[in-house]
Design a protein around this nucleic acid. Structure first.
Length: 663
DNA sequence: CAGACGCCTG
DNA sequence: CAGGCGTCTG
């Protein structure tokens, strides 16, 4: 298999947007922006400081109180550029006065001021996230451009939600005297701040979940009485956290109140914290926070979107600026600020978390589902969520709940919509299953929203619900979480593995997602007969079991089926066309055969099919032509010999495909 | 017997 | 693409 892959084999139309690094080239193949700046860029002791500084700098989202939800990595290149330009525009009208006030001063200030500023920023983030979105609209540029620190400190006390927040921050302030801290303490403080953020976000998640429940209850009143209150907490590994010990208890208590999703996120966080000797602890915490929120909010939007957004398939798959803007008409006006200042920082943040638990839902999916259930797990979000920065408002306003967040990278509405429209609302509404009983059930704006997701996975209920220790009162909604016992065991094992292995930050999937399918299809260009080991190698983010393996194998079997059908069809066509010599039969990129295949395996046409595939296709076509010409097709198993030939022509799948996050 | 494959079907 | 079934193999 000395199949040298053409240099451009992984080339894509959007290569210009990314660096030349090979691994980076992989991503654009799937129209994902996998940002290339490694986390190591933040190797300095205060990662969060840099992040926050960058967040503040040029964006002013904090002061703008306009935190928008966005998904990070899956934005198309065109999106990227369009967003950038938009952001630039917005930036011009945004309170740029803050920018200099917020960013530059602290670079020169001594450590004390620096830390205070950082703290202030974090607190401001929390404040903004917990504050009412209506309290201040983004557009109010005239917001005074006072010193950021002042502003933050002020807001810290005025606008933070009661309880934990104030509490935790006060604790920090009291116990930590600025100027007397060494690097470790700084870390601790940052960790603490992040935890405060987590608390805040968890509360917001809670609110979101309340919204979910409201909607749900209005749609599915039959479940209202028994809403599952998910187990308090199966795993609490946060005690492993070795920083911010004084906040730990409080943190733990609060975490117990959060939903299953939160718990999952928290578990991830806990694990990440556990591994937290790394400098990226703060970073990972931040990421997890963002992801947790994003995950929940995404569900909201999926739900909302199911209410009647009507997009053509093209639109669904499109990342076009048009759609982008059409779906978020108010985004521009509310957009906090520009990305353009710190694109690399955001990119780094995104890329630094390629395999993390941004999809808590996946971990809850029934991995050993029976065949009654579609094996493709709907992926809530195909892209990692980033942390705090740019601001993209969700296309749908969610009233009553002040969840406006900001995320580091542009979380494109289009992507969210694209995803949810393409795959439907993920059934993973695990959040609901552990909602606190005290829910506000009167959310008028949600009454009309259909809850398609509820029926989506009803197939599963028949077979596995009974196994769950706490039969879901939410019906199919929680089906994904109703893992079979052994599934649950595997989940636990996975978590244990994650806890034990500091390097295992893979966002292990409990099921195959459409992204995996897409990846598999692209892999088909290289290998038609992948072995189980190859599959396991190239789907490192998949928790393999018999079912998953079989599914993947089945996928490739289906791919082959289509492939050979096309081959036979075109071979017969060639014969019908009177072609006498096999050599007259070629397969080029212009060939109809290739176009048919490309359409099937590379629908988006964003992947440069390796030349080798064309060769194999041509050989296959020749085989079929020869066999048919020799009337071998009268034999019932005449194709077997062809299969035998073709199966030897697999080439090695590029390493890039091993990157689980590339999808 | 499990796993892999192919074929057929929906 | 998934299910189901039959076949083959080790």
């Amino acid at each position: 298999m000395n199949l040298s892959l053409p240099d451009q084999s992984m080339h894509t139309s959007c290569d210009g947007c990314l660096e030349d690094d090979k691994s980076d080239v992989m991503m654009p193949c799937f129209r994902k922006n996998m940002y290339d700046e490694p986390l190591a860029s933040y190797s300095s002791g205060s990662i969060i400081s840099q992040l926050l500084r960058k967040s503040v700098h040029g964006k002013r989202v904090l002061d703008e109180n306009s935190f928008y939800l966005s998904t990070a990595a899956d934005s198309g290149q065109e999106d990227q550029s369009s967003v950038s330009s938009k952001d630039s525009t917005v930036e011009a009208t945004s309170p740029t006065g803050h920018t200099s006030a917020g960013a530059s001063p602290e670079e020169e200030h001594p450590l004390t001021d620096h830390l205070q500023a950082k703290r202030a920023r974090v607190e401001n983030i929390i404040r903004v996230m917990t504050g009412s979105p209506n309290s201040r609209q983004h557009g109010d540029n005239e917001r005074p451009g006072r010193e950021a620190r002042e502003s933050y400190r002020e807001n810290k006390r005025k606008q933070r939600l009661p309880q934990h927040q104030e509490h935790g921050a006060a604790g920090v302030q009291v116990s930590r005297q600025p100027g007397s801290r060494n690097g470790e303490n700084i870390k601790e403080e940052e960790c603490h701040k992040l935890k405060e953020q987590l608390h805040s976000m968890q509360r917001l998640l809670h609110q979101l979940q309340e919204k979910f429940l409201q909607v749900y209850n209005q749609e599915e009143p039959e479940y209202e009485n028994g809403e599952a209150i998910e187990a308090d907490s199966d795993h609490e590994i946060l005690e492993e956290n070795n920083c911010c010990m004084n906040a730990e208890d409080d943190y733990e208590k609060k975490n117990r109140r959060v939903t299953a999703d939160c718990k999952d996120q928290k578990t991830g966080i806990g694990y990440l914290v556990h591994q937290g000797e790394g400098q990226s602890l703060q970073e990972t915490l931040k990421q997890e926070l963002s992801k947790a929120v994003n995950d929940c909010v995404d569900r909201v939007f999926k739900k909302v979107s199911s209410a009647g957004l009507d997009l053509s398939p093209q639109q669904r798959m499109s990342s076009s600026p048009e759609l982008h803007s059409s779906l978020s008409a108010d985004r521009k006006s509310q957009q906090g600020s520009s990305n353009t200042d710190q694109p690399q920082a955001e990119e780094a943040r995104v890329k630094s978390q390629p395999l993390e638990f941004y999809e808590s839902s996946e971990a809850q999916s029934p991995q050993d589902q029976t065949e009654a259930l579609s094996l493709v797990v709907r992926k809530p979000i195909a892209a990692p969520v980033s942390s705090i920065t740019p601001t993209v408002k969700r296309p749908y306003p969610i009233h009553q709940t002040p969840f406006q967040y900001n995320y580091s990278a542009p979380l494109h509405d289009t992507h969210i919509l694209e995803h949810l429209l393409k795959y439907g609302p993920h059934s993973n509404f695990a959040a609901l299953s552990c909602m606190p009983p005290s829910m506000d059930r009167t959310s008028p704006e949600s009454v009309d929203l259909p809850w398609d997701a509820i029926s989506m996975r009803s197939k599963v209920t028949s077979s596995h619900l009974g196994h769950h220790s706490r039969p879901s009162s939410l019906g199919a909604v929680a089906v994904d979480n109703l893992c079979l016992p052994h599934v649950k065991i595997e989940c636990s094992e996975l978590q244990n593995m994650a806890e034990r292995n500091p390097y295992m930050s893979l966002n292990i999937q409990e099921g195959l997602t459409p992204s995996h399918l897409k990846k598999a299809k692209l892999m088909f260009f290289y290998t038609r007969y992948p072995s189980s080991n190859v599959l396991k190698t190239y789907f490192p983010d998949v928790k393999f079991n018999r079912c998953i393996t079989s599914q993947l194998i089945k996928w490739f079997s289906n791919f082959r089926e289509f492939y050979y059908i096309q081959m036979e069809k075109f071979a017969r066509q060639a014969i019908a066309d009177g072609i006498r010599d096999v050599k007259d039969i070629t397969v080029s990129r212009d060939s109809e055969l290739f176009r048919a295949l490309n359409m099937h395996y590379n629908k988006a046409n964003d992947f440069h099919v390796p030349d080798r595939f064309l060769e194999v296709a041509e050989i296959t076509l020749h085989e079929f032509y020869n066999a048919i010409s020799a009337s071998k097709d009268s034999d019932s198993s005449w194709k077997k010999s062809i299969y035998k030939v073709i199966c030897k022509m697999d080439s090695e799948v590029p390493e890039e495909f091993k990157t689980s996050s590339c999808m």
